[in-house]
Amino acid sequence: MDYFVELFFSGLTRGSIYALIALGYTMVYGIIGLINFAHGEIYMIGAFTALIVSTVLSIFGFPLPAIIILTALAAAIWASAYGYTVEKLAYRPLRNAPRLSPLISAIGMSMFLQNYVLLAQTPDFLPFPALIPDFDFMEPYAGFIGSSDMVILVTTTVIMILLTLLIKFTRTGKAMRATAQDRKMAMLVGINVDHVISVTFIIGSALAAIGGMLIASHIGQINFYIGFIAGIKAFTAAVLGGIGSIPGAVLGSFILGLTESFATGYVSSDYEDVFAFSLLVLILIFRPSGLLGKATIEKV
């Protein structure tokens, strides 16, 4: 039973990281209908920026809470800047091009960013210092949930609530929903669509960067390739929940995280990635619109 609980919590932790990345996919897809292949790379760049900033700060002798806050800020800011730039360079010029063009451009951008980090930094795994200390009050539960799992769960929940509030109640959120519904109509009622799309990329990238920082500190090592697999899995989660739907992405992420955790715990860890891919193929065959998504009818 203890093993079960342990797997359950590790699944939740995985799920919350997937959710942070999947939100970026689903928001971008909802608004411009593009699978942003470079999103996994933004997550990886967030993790790298966090590693660099936190190491520099700790060498300069900053106290731990200041390091955590400044690192999170720096990772989010730089990742958003990358997200914004990628959108402007690789997607905006192709907004009215055939569907295949932005997809190929996105794959190119993903390859470019991966190799950019590889060349600018290192092809090897880098150790990531544990940013989150072991809390005393978590001592009795240490058998099945660690302090960093707890922090990840709480942070993710807070971020989700904030994001929901932003989308539901602010002017920007309203503009985003309008653009997702009908871009042309949104333009006609005076919404600056380019601006809304940029904001979407910025928010999505910042969330991915926070996810990258949390998971890197949790696992303890990063390299340039982590974004690829994480990106595909988060995308699987987004599709599972119904792409374009924000609660769907969160639900899908938790389902995927738990499935993976139990499958690797009880079946075999060799095929960890195969489970996610098979799940993706199965959903696409039986319910392409996802759990919470609406089936779209293409009109001529």
């Binding site: 360079l89 091009a97 190119g108 951008m109 390859m111 470019f112 190799n115 060349l119």
Partner: peptide
Amino acid sequence: SEYRMLVFGAVLVIMMVFRP
């Protein structure tokens, strides 16, 4: 040769934007 994949990625983006 170490810049190979970097260039390949850039080629995909540049071709799509400038010469699809």
